[in-house]
């Protein structure tokens, strides 16, 4: 066979534009902008429709107040609402703190003793699957102190995701790393501190974000059940009371604050998660790109 010359393709001098890649890039950019713009547009349309419905149908404000009345009420009643919000936030944060200590503590106990885990885990599940609203009345019968009762309710709801996620995380240690620690003669404490706890951190933070929202829900639900008003009652009671008086604008204003608080808690915990994980964990890396 005759030998043939091997031709090496040289890059073409013209700049070749790939239509598909260009389209893909444009789409990505649109999504990036749309992520912020679209929810705002939806928000404005909703507010406008709400306002328009109230105006056109002449709906009285004790049935459905228009959005501007809600904002006006929020400003007018801000003192009452803020002091109620403060109570709700206090209960929520305290419950969350106790849930973190209890959930993480129990998870660590679980991983240290398998017997402890198999003895107590079913009861943690039962506590979790029973609706808080059905336990709360009993709690307020047996617990005299109202704050302690509220705290207990919020804690029951919030602690489970922390417990189950942290337990999962502590048990999800790479088995080669476990072997490595054993070969280097690590004791139980070193293994927990240098291997299991860092491994569990992303799981714990995932649980914490869920627990933050749940603690707020628990605090609000428990207050509905507790029902007693007076000084030192939270936003849930404000809503109940305003409902009795047909003060619908205030109900909306309080609702707005509760929703805002929930979003704020979620945002703070997401930020905390990002701070702790962005240097090394997959979940935080994808956001950067």
């Amino acid at each position: 066979m005759a030998s043939t010359d091997i031709k090496v393709d040289s890059p073409s001098p013209n700049k070749v534009v790939d239509k598909n890649e260009l389209l893909k890039k444009r789409k990505e950019r649109n999504i990036k902008i749309g992520k912020w713009v679209m929810p705002i547009i939806v928000f404005m349309i909703t507010i406008y429709l709400w306002y328009w419905t109230v105006q056109v149908n002449n709906i009285p404000h004790y049935i459905l107040p228009d959005p501007f009345l809600v904002v006006t009420t929020l400003i007018q009643d801000i003192q009452i609402l803020l002091s109620a919000l403060q109570v709700t936030i206090q209960i929520t944060l305290m419950a969350l703190a106790v849930a973190v200590v209890g959930g993480v503590g129990l998870a660590i106990l679980f991983t240290q003793s398998k017997f402890f885990e198999i003895s107590f885990f079913p009861y943690a599940v039962i506590l979790q699957v029973t609706p808080i609203i059905s336990i709360a009345p009993l709690i307020f019968i047996y617990v005299d102190n109202r704050t302690v009762g509220l705290l207990l309710c919020a804690w029951i709801v919030a602690f489970f995701p922390i417990l189950s996620n942290t337990t999962l995380g502590l048990n999800s240690v790479d088995h080669n790393l476990k072997d490595l620690f054993k070969i280097y003669g690590a004791n139980r404490w070193q293994k927990l501190l240098h291997l299991q706890i860092p491994s569990a951190l992303p799981y714990f933070l995932g649980g914490l974000r869920i627990a933050g929202g749940l603690a707020l829900i628990g605090a609000v639900v428990a207050e509905y059940v507790a029902g007693t008003g007076g000084i030192g009652s939270g936003l849930a009671y404000t809503i109940l009371e305003a409902g009795y008086r047909l003060n619908i604008p205030r109900m909306f204003a309080a609702l707005l604050l509760i929703a805002g608080t929930g979003v704020f808690i979620f945002a703070i915990l997401s930020f905390l998660s990002h701070l702790l994980l962005h240097k090394w964990h997959e979940s935080a890396l994808q956001k950067e790109n």
Binding site: D174, N176, L177, D179, L180, I183, H194, L195, P198, L201, K279, W280, H281
Partner: peptide, 11 residues
């Protein structure tokens, strides 16, 4: 020891 995976602490 060296395993099949690098087995490093990612954090």
């Amino acid at each position: 020891v060296v395993f099949q995976e690098a087995t490093l602490l990612p954090w």
